[in-house]
Computed example of a mutant assay.
Amino acid sequence: MNHTQTELKVVIGAGEYRNNPGWLHTQEEEVDLLNETTWKNMFKENSISAILAEHVWEHLTYEEGLQAAKTCMKYLKPFGYIRCAVPDGYFPDETYQSIVQIGGPGPEDHPAASHKIVYNYKLLIELFEAAGFEVSLLEYCDENGQFHQYGWDGADGVIFRSKKFDPRNQAERLVAPSLIIDAFKRGNR
């Protein structure tokens, strides 16, 4: 099935989340970041306006993440983007870090899905820039554990595990933040 509408927006690894009405929600069996054949079966190159991946990239090694970013680049339209959220390696909370660590217990709903990498903002930017993207930070912690948030719109893709949308993070203290970026494809690619 080839999707050809003008504003094709795809959620990768949607799981049970349906936070983005009007987006195509996919599972790994349908669109696998490491198997380009699954992409060819679903989409044309340069056809996707936006891709959203919430807590997906940390389940790939750095090399796999780079390969996945390059695949996304191929299928994004010029000026399209990936909104990517991962656990934040600079969030200063021991309990959080014990859950998100490499090979750690992982999220309670998917205990077998262990993490292969823990990103901080520098490493995530490096990966997407190496794939040819221009990166904007949306939410992240810096080296000192200081949280930063820039104005971003859920209409461009809701990340549930964020300061902006997760009810656990609406109090004075952050409980479950994400490192969130938008990675843009330049118009000449």
Rank of each mutant, 00 (worst) to 15 (best):
R18Q: 13
N19I: 02
P21Q: 13
W23L: 06
E30G: 08
V31F: 08
L33W: 10
L33D: 13
L34V: 10
L34D: 08
E36W: 01
E36C: 02
T38W: 13
T38D: 14
W39F: 15
W39T: 05
K40A: 14
K40S: 14
N41E: 15
N41V: 01
M42K: 12
N46E: 15
N46R: 10
S47N: 11
S47H: 10
I48N: 04
I51C: 10
A53Y: 03
A53G: 11
V56C: 01
V56Y: 09
V56G: 01
W57D: 03
Y62K: 06
Y62F: 15
E63M: 04
E63V: 05
E64L: 07
G65C: 08
Q67K: 12
A68T: 11
A69N: 12
T71M: 09
C72V: 09
L76A: 06
K77H: 06
P78W: 13
G80P: 07
I82Q: 03
I82T: 03
I82S: 02
I82R: 02
R83Q: 09
C84Q: 12
V86Y: 00
G89D: 12
F91D: 04
P92I: 02
D93G: 11
T95N: 09
Q97T: 03
S98F: 13
G104V: 09
G104T: 11
P105Q: 13
G106V: 08
G106I: 09
H110A: 12
H110P: 00
A112I: 06
A112L: 15
A113K: 04
A113V: 01
A113L: 10
S114E: 05
S114V: 14
I117C: 02
V118N: 07
L124N: 04
L124E: 06
I125P: 00
E126G: 10
E126Y: 13
F128D: 03
F128S: 04
E129H: 04
E129M: 07
F133D: 07
E134N: 10
V135D: 00
S136M: 07
S136I: 02
S136A: 08
L138V: 00
E139Q: 15
D142V: 04
D142A: 00
Q146P: 00
F147D: 02
H148I: 00
H148P: 08
Y150F: 15
G151V: 01
G151L: 14
W152M: 00
D153Y: 13
D153H: 14
